[in-house]
């Protein structure tokens, strides 16, 4: 689904991503760990195509297409969706409208229903992200992605700032978004065995706390350290390692 090869990215003239190689196959959810400033957000912004993230080397392939230099909206239409860590406010544009814009890619979405499910109805008439609290921003981003239904979901710290009560809501919504909650009792034989993974989305999720792991099944975890992916393993295991040895220890043990 997503293939990144030898990716090097500069931000403001400074090399941030030094040599990234990774693949997220169809239906898999990968978790990205890494200390502050290691380049996690940079990677996601680069995948989406935002300006200011200058690719100096390497290639990004999505659904078999080279998207390294593709404009943002074409990537979106091809099926990539992102929840930003720090999205901008858009004055005068109602949250309802941006959710409609997202839904338009799918031929329309039931905005009211989606908002009710995310306990976000009362925010629909507010300007996009205007004075939203940290947790509200996360729910707003998620609501937009629910309408958009991308095939590859990029989530930049979806749980940070979300309170305990809303965490369950956010976690379950992400699970729903990723299509991993559909426990489809597959017949022991026959063509439906892989049904769950057919509807499942691919995802790359950045988390510091790992709380999100209580709600979604992660296929793989990685650690980004000083612009290099240094560690690939089961996500929960990584979390444990980071707790025990710190990022640096984690990084060192693969060398």
């Amino acid at each position: 689904m997503l293939l990144i090869e030898e990716l090097k990215v500069e931000v403001g003239g400074k090399p941030i991503l030094k040599n990234i190689n990774m693949e997220v196959p169809r239906g898999e959810t990968h978790i990205l760990f890494g200390p502050n400033g290691s380049g996690k957000t940079t990677l996601m912004m680069t995948l989406m195509g935002f300006s200011g993230y200058h690719i100096t080397h390497g290639k990004i392939t999505f659904k078999g297409e080279d998207i390294t230099h593709m404009p943002i909206h074409e990537r979106a239409q091809l099926g990539i969706g992102i929840s930003l860590q720090r999205p901008p406010t858009i004055n005068g544009l109602k949250t309802r409208n941006i959710v409609e814009i997202c839904g338009a890619m799918q031929g329309g979405a039931d905005v009211e229903k989606l908002a009710r499910e995310l306990n976000f109805s009362e925010f629909l008439d507010r300007d996009v992200n205007h004075n939203f609290s940290g947790g509200e921003i996360k729910r707003s981003e998620l609501l937009q992605l629910m309408a958009q239904q991308p095939d590859l979901v990029l989530l930049d710290e979806p749980e940070s700032g979300v309170d305990l009560e809303n965490m369950a809501l956010v976690g379950e919504t992400i699970n729903l978004l990723l299509g991993r909650g559909i426990q489809c009792p597959a017949p022991s034989d026959g063509p439906f065995v892989n049904r769950a993974s057919d509807t499942a989305k691919s995802a790359l999720v950045i988390t510091h706390t790992g709380h999100i792991l209580d709600y979604i099944t992660a296929d793989k975890g990685r650690v980004l350290y000083e612009g290099v992916l240094c560690f690939t393993r089961n996500a929960r295991e990584i979390l444990k390692w980071i707790r025990q040895r710190g990022y640096e220890g984690c990084a060192r043990c693969t060398i």
């Binding site: 989406m48 935002f50 300006s51 404009p71 943002i72 909206h73 990537r75 979106a76 239409q77 969706g81 992102i82 930003l84 999205p87 901008p88 858009i90 941006i98 814009i101 997202c102 338009a104 890619m105 937009q144 958009q148």
Partner: peptide, 14 residues
Amino acid sequence: RREIEYLMARGLDE
């Protein structure tokens, strides 16, 4: 620019 690109990430052209 960030506002433009945010909306582009939601599928709108520039």
